[in-house]
Design a protein around this nucleic acid. Structure first.
Lengths: 338, 338
DNA sequence: CATACTGAATGAAACGTTACATGAAAATAG
DNA sequence: CTATTTTCATGTAACGTTTCATTCAGTATG
């Protein structure tokens, strides 16, 4: 397992080029060096196929060029997308990402933060659920979707506008009476604004609406029962549904199928998040799309920005609407590749 | 950005405990130390909240305690699951994972390998598509789903058995004439065996079958046309379909819906991979499930195993069948949480 | 031609750890 | 009670960088 062929070091390059160690360092870091020296060093680097040892660099600089990402997992499609785009944004800046999968466990969240703080990372990006998370002053931290106190910036999509947009879309699509479905407590902080935005949108468009908020642990049947209760003569009493996540919209579609309600003929459905079935294929449902790539870029930018003077407490990025088959648009999108 | 409050070092611990530096090192690494010393050091570690600097460790040991994962992205659900479980398996062994998203780009794949080889990682786990990838002798490498030459072990699920199982299931479920659908060249190496396994299963059960292999770039319409051609009197000429991936099965369901074929009433459908819609909810379709957690564990184990003497060239892990609504089982699984 | 000044190459020190040679103290044997 | 062995804490060197004080060469100035 131990590498037998040792990697060339700066010392080797210096010897090869016939210059001093410090000169090689300067060339590597782009500091001013006389042309004749630069060329000799560059040739030596080429010849030996030298690469800097970033761990020695990190040791010296007391920087690790690593950022921790605290996220429950990478399996949930929304988390998976965030992970991908944040990793890409970090790699672009020559930073590495330490993936910390917390499994929604508040204890693990805190443990990872301690670990990160003590030594190993230059900053943390966290999508966390522990309401009493302790983050030391001197550890740069950017939160996703959760306000975590005065001087920790939070990046989110414009959840309020998203809720509003959903209501307006349903109104535009001809709905008269709609429902808002939300699953339990797992939606902390920012995403809660979807409800307020939706109500606001309904009000301004004269849509009447009902609310159903499921607590954690509410069973599938209980949810189904809510829908059953709102049926009269084999039809739902509402003609549009806004689900607070695509995941919930997916489950709702299952339930509606069992109740012999057709989507979108009998009831139109809008979800939230912009999850696609296989990453690049169709949306699971018509949905309010979060700008995940932009959110990722913003997190990294905020975390690594040098002038830490201005710390905006909350950054809301714009959402968009996307058709996904569960609404009755005029035009239906074109075909796709297999 | 720079940390003002410096992290305590071993030297600080040694001073605090009144012992030598080396003694602290031994305690930290669990080497034999006299009890009175050990206790003093442990107390000092507690008091100062000391954590080892893994980058100094890495510099000394010429090990980075980091493993690169080469994978196209983390968005595709299968890749997302692999990423999650591999990361977990590595963290359990106190290794870090460097996520290298290659976007299916052979050039990026090779670049990441060069980077990894030269310095930065102790090994590589790769799910790659570049057939002419160059991997140096002295860099431990484990491939997923791709045979990459004599001394690079490959971890995969038992694709042949999976194909066979699919055929047998369809036979058990009453099918008489079935179809095998496969999408293009993106399925290299190991997963190709699904076809052979399926044929073998059909043969042994007396099932007749048809094959359709889509090349890359074949459009959705072309695929739909294949299905249309196999219809007579408003019904498909086959009563079962095995799709080589869940993704394809997902698309196929869309197509069948357009052709007014009911699943599973008119035609039963089995996919491959074991992808769930939202990580923990229903399967998209009845499917052959890859043992992703076990595969991940195996990759890490193989990569980090000390006695590198025995290098099995191919490890096939067993697959299972799971019901997902697109087949006509007797019993239907129970309910689920929201 | 001598002096002062500039710019750039040099090489040693330091970052936090581990490994190893050293030596002291304790334990055992004679 | 001495001699020998064992045990184990000690402290230094080394890992590959960066930084910074030093030095040196070359140019400009009087």
């Amino acid at each position: 397992m131990k590498k037998e062929i040792s990697t060339p070091t700066m010392k080797d390059v210096a010897r090869e080029a016939g210059v001093a160690l410090g000169t090689v360092s300067k060339v590597v870091n782009g500091l001013p060096v006389g042309d004749s020296y630069r060329i000799r060093v560059e040739n030596a680097i080429q010849k030996l196929n030298y690469q800097v040892n970033s761990y020695a660099q990190g040791l010296k600089a007391n920087k690790t060029y690593t950022v921790a990402l605290l996220i429950p997992n990478t399996i949930d499609p929304f988390f998976a997308a965030l992970t991908y785009y944040i990793n890409t944004a970090l790699m672009k800046r020559r930073y590495k990402m330490l993936l910390c999968a917390t499994d929604f466990d508040p204890r693990q969240e805190q443990e990872y933060i301690l670990m990160a703080q003590n030594n190993k990372v230059d900053g943390i990006i966290g999508l966390t659920y522990n309401p009493s998370l302790v983050v030391e002053e001197n550890t740069p931290f950017v939160a996703i979707d959760r306000s975590m106190g005065s001087n920790i910036p939070c990046v989110a999509c414009d959840n309020f506008a998203g809720g509003q947009l959903a209501a307006e879309k349903l109104a535009d699509l001809g709905c008269k009476h709609v429902a808002f479905l939300r699953s339990g407590s797992s939606l902390a902080n920012e995403p809660n604004k979807r409800k307020a935005g939706f109500e606001n949108g309904c009000l301004s468009r004269g849509l009447s609406y009902e609310m159903k908020i499921l607590n954690d642990g509410d069973s599938f049947e209980e949810f189904e029962q809510f829908l059953s209760e709102h049926m009269a003569g084999g039809r739902l009493t509402f003609d549009g549904i806004f689900c607070v996540t695509d995941r919930l919209a997916y489950l709702t579609q299952d339930m509606l199928r069992r109740l012999r309600q057709r989507v979108p003929e009998d009831v139109q459905l809008i979800g939230f998040d912009g999850i696609r079935a296989f990453g690049n294929t169709d949306y699971h449902c018509s949905t309010i799309v979060q700008p995940v790539p932009e959110m990722a870029e913003m997190c990294v930018d905020l975390l690594l920005r040098e002038n830490t003077l201005v710390k905006p407490p909350l950054i809301c990025l714009p959402v968009t609407y996307a058709y996904g088959g569960t609404t009755r648009e005029k035009a239906i999108p074109a075909s796709k590749e297999v």
